[in-house]
Design a binder for these strands. Structure first.
Length: 581
RNA sequence: GCGCCCGUAGCUCAGUGGAUAGAGCGCCUGCCUCCGGAGCAGGAAGUCGCAGGUUCGAAUCCUGCCGGGCGUACCA
C-alpha cells in the first residue's frame, strides 16, 4: 500500500465533505512529536473558502475515514492535522509485507510503456567518466519503473555515425595494410582513437583518405560499411564489458544507434516540409519556432539539413522520437542526458509536437543532470588534459575497497575479499553519483567518490551484511530458512526504535513511486540511508537473538524486512549486496 | 543581449509553500566482558548571496540586483 497516497485521498475527501476543496497535502511529519504524517491543506483551503482554518481542520478530522490506519487525528498549530499511525496497523501491514515477494509494493495502477534513452556513448572513443552519470542514473530509473510494473524499453542511442568514423575506418584499413594480416583487433579503444587522430593530424595523405572514407560511408560503399561495422562491433563489445562490470542492465539488443535512423532522415525533412514547418535560411533547411532567439535576438532555427546536404542530431532525434512513439508505442519518453542539451530537447520536442510526430498524450521529458567538474570547478580533465577512462576509475575504486577489506576483515579468504572489493568499490562509485540531486554539477573528487564512510553504498551494504549475520548467528541460514520462524511471525512493536524502523519500512512504496514520477534516484538513496540508520538504532537498543521467543520472532521479522528492503532498494539502484564483507 | 541552471554549516551536499533549516566529512565528548565499532549516542558550527514583493506561512513562488556555470545556425 502507498500509505501517503491513501492518506492523501482519504483526507482530501474529508476536506471536501467538510465543505472545502483542495488537496489535503499529506507529507511525512516534520518532527516526531507531530506524529508520522501531517496534512497541511486546511490552512490554504480555509483561506480560499473564507473560513477559520482550525475550525475547518476540526471538521476534516470529524469527517475523515482513517480509523483503520491512524490514531485519532489531532489538530495542531494554525490548522495542521497530525497523523499518528496505529500500532496494530503497522504490525499487520508489516506482517503482510513479510510474506510478500514485493514487500507490499503495489504495481502501478496504470502501467505505461516508458522508453528510456540513456548512456548513449560516442563509440569512436573509449567510455570515460563523462558517460557515467547518464548510464548510472538511467539504469536506476529503468529498474525502478520496471519494478513498479511499467513496460520499460531501454534505448541506447549510441554515437555510431559521423565524421570520426571516416577517420577510424580509414585507420583500420591502413592498419590492416601495415600489419598485413587483416586482423581487426582493437585492444584499447582509446589508444586506437588517439593513434587515428594523431595520424589524421600529421599525415596529409591519411587525412584525405579519412575524408574520402566519410563520403564512401555515406554513399553506402560496401567495403567502407563493412569496416565500419567492425569498428562499431568492437566498440560495442568494449562498452558491454564496462556495462557488465558496472552492473548496468543494458545489453546489445538495447542498442539502437544514430545510424539506425539514417534512412529515415530524408523522410523526416520531407514530412516537416509537408507540415508547412520547413524554410530555407542561409542554405540550410530549418524549422523556426516562436520563442527561440539566438545571440543577436533573431529567430533561432532548428537546422534539420545542413547547407551541404548533411543531417544533424536534431534530425536524428526527430527520427528517433517518431520511432519511439509510433513503433515502440511509448506513453512516456525519458532522455537522460546532461543539462547542456536542455535547449536542444526543448526544440526537438516542440518541433515534434508541431509536426504531429508524437500523439498528444505522450510525455516527453528531458531528465538533465549536471556536469562532471574537477576540483578547480572546471570541466573535469586528468592532469594532462585527457579524460579519465571508466575502466581506470573502476580499477581505482576496487583497489581502495580491497585495501579497506584487507584491513577490516582479514578473516575472509582472498577470493571473498576480491568479490567484496568489487561490489563495494563499484557500489561506492555508483552511489556517490546517484545520491545527490542530479541537477547539480558533480564535483569529481577521488576521495569523495570512493569514500566508504557515512552516506555511502558501503554503509548500506554493511547494514545489510550486519542484518544477515544475525540470521547466521541464530542457528545458520538453513535452519532459519527451514522453519521460517520470522516470516510467519507476528510483528509486535513495543520499543520506540522498533516503531521508528517500522514506519520507515512502510514508506518504501511511496518512495519508489516518487522516484519514478520525478526521475530522482537520490530520493531512494535518502530513503535507504534513513532505513539503515533506523535499523542501526534498533540494533543498538533491541537485542534480537537473546529476546524471548515471541519478541525474538518479531524482531527477526523486522530484521528480515530490513534486509530485503535494503537489498531491493540497492538492487533498484544497481548496487550489489553481500552476505559478508 | 536572451534562455536555462545554481549561490544553504569550515568543506561536499539534502531540503515536494508549512511548525525550532538537515545530513556526511572535519572538529569536540561519551560508548567495544554484549547479535559485526565500515557502527551508535551527544555537542559546537547558519544574516539559506542581497533587497523588495506575494502568502495565514517563503530556503522554496514573483521582481530587481550581485556572483558563478551552461547554452544560444549548420558538432553531439
Amino acid at each position: 500500500m502507498n500509505l501517503r497516497r491513501t492518506l492523501e485521498t482519504r483526507l482530501s475527501r474529508a476536506l471536501s465533505d467538510a465543505g472545502a476543496d483542495g488537496p489535503a497535502l499529506v507529507a511525512p511529519a516534520g518532527k516526531p512529536e507531530f506524529g508520522d504524517y501531517q496534512a497541511n491543506g486546511c490552512m490554504a483551503a480555509a483561506k480560499r473558502a473564507g473560513g477559520n482554518p482550525r475550525q475547518l481542520a476540526e471538521r476534516v478530522v470529524a469527517a475523515a475515514d482513517v480509523a483503520d490506519l491512524a490514531e485519532p487525528l489531532e489538530v495542531a498549530g494554525p490548522g495542521f492535522i497530525n497523523i499518528t499511525l496505529r500500532r496494530d496497523f503497522l504490525q499487520q501491514h508489516l506482517g503482510e509485507a513479510l510474506s510478500d515477494e514485493r514487500l507490499a509494493v503495489p504495481p502501478a495502477e496504470a502501467p505505461q510503456t516508458v522508453v528510456v534513452d540513456y548512456s548513449g556513448p560516442n563509440l569512436a572513443k573509449e567510455m570515460h567518466v563523462g558517460h557515467l552519470r547518464s548510464t548510472i542514473i538511467g539504469d536506476a530509473l529503468v529498474r525502478v519503473s520496471e519494478f513498479l510494473g511499467h513496460n520499460v524499453i531501454r534505448q541506447n542511442h549510441v554515437g555510431d555515425w559521423g565524421t570520426q568514423f571516416g577517420m577510424l575506418t580509414a585507420y583500420m584499413d591502413a592498419r590492416d595494410d601495415d600489419a598485413g594480416d587483416g586482423g581487426h583487433r582493437i585492444a584499447d579503444m582509446e589508444a586506437f582513437y588517439q593513434a587515428a587522430k594523431r595520424r589524421f593530424d600529421t599525415d596529409e595523405a591519411f587525412a584525405d583518405a579519412a575524408r574520402r572514407s566519410v563520403v564512401k560511408l555515406q554513399g553506402g560503399d560496401e567495403h567502407a560499411l563493412s569496416v565500419w561495422r567492425d569498428v562499431v562491433d568492437q566498440s560495442l563489445r568494449h562498452a558491454q564489458e564496462v556495462y557488465d562490470r558496472l552492473g548496468v542492465t543494458l545489453q546489445r539488443e538495447h542498442v539502437r544507434g544514430e545510424s539506425a535512423y539514417n534512412d529515415d532522415l530524408p523522410r523526416v525533412v520531407a514530412d516537416l516540409d509537408a507540415a508547412g514547418l520547413l524554410s530555407e535560411s542561409q542554405g540550410a533547411q530549418c524549422v523556426f519556432l516562436d520563442g527561440f532567439t539566438n545571440a543577436d535576438g533573431e529567430p533561432l532555427p532548428v537546422i534539420v539539413r545542413k547547407s551541404d546536404g548533411g543531417y544533424l542530431y536534431a534530425t536524428t532525434d526527430l527520427g528517433a522520437l517518431r520511432y519511439r512513439a509510433r513503433h515502440l508505442h511509448a506513453d512516456r519518453i525519458l532522455y537522460v542526458t546532461d543539462s547542456r542539451q536542455a535547449l536542444h530537447f526543448q526544440q526537438v520536442f516542440a518541433v515534434a509536437r508541431a509536426a504531429g510526430f508524437v500523439p498528444e498524450h505522450v510525455l516527453l521529458e528531458h531528465v538533465p543532470f549536471g556536469m562532471m567538474l574537477g576540483a578547480n570547478r572546471q570541466p573535469f580533465r586528468t592532469r594532462d588534459g585527457g579524460t579519465v577512462k571508466l575502466t581506470d576509475l573502476l580499477d581505482e575504486a576496487v583497489r581502495r575497497a580491497r585495501a579497506l577489506v584487507d584491513e577490516k576483515n582479514p578473516n575472509l579468504d582472498a577470493p571473498a575479499r576480491d568479490a567484496v572489493a568489487e561490489a563495494v568499490g563499484i557500489g561506492a562509485v555508483k552511489y556517490a553519483d546517484l545520491c545527490q540531486n542530479r541537477t547539480s554539477d558533480y564535483v569529481f573528487a577521488w576521495d569523495k567518490l570512493l569514500s566508504l564512510e557515512g552516506n555511502t553504498a558501503p554503509y548500506l551494504q554493511y547494514a545489510y551484511a550486519r542484518v544477515r549475520s544475525i540470521f547466521r548467528k541464530g542457528g545458520g541460514p538453513e535452519q532459519i530458512a527451514a522453519d521460517d520462524e520470522h516470516r510467519a511471525a507476528e510483528i509486535v512493536l513495543s520499543e520506540q526504535a522498533e516503531r521508528t524502523l517500522a514506519v520507515t519500512l512502510v514508506r518504501l512504496p511511496e518512495t519508489l513511486e516518487t522516484v519514478a514520477r520525478e526521475s530522482m534516484p537520490n530520493l531512494l538513496c535518502a530513503y535507504l540511508y534513513g532505513l539503515a540508520g533506523a535499523f542501526m538504532a534498533f540494533y543498538e537498543t533491541c537485542p534480537v537473538l537473546k529476546a524471548d521467543a515471541a519478541v525474538r520472532a518479531s524482531r527477526l521479522g523486522l530484521c528480515d524486512l530490513t534486509a530485503r528492503t535494503l537489498a531491493t532498494g540497492l538492487d533498484l539502484l544497481g548496487i550489489e549486496t553481500l552476505e559478508r564483507m
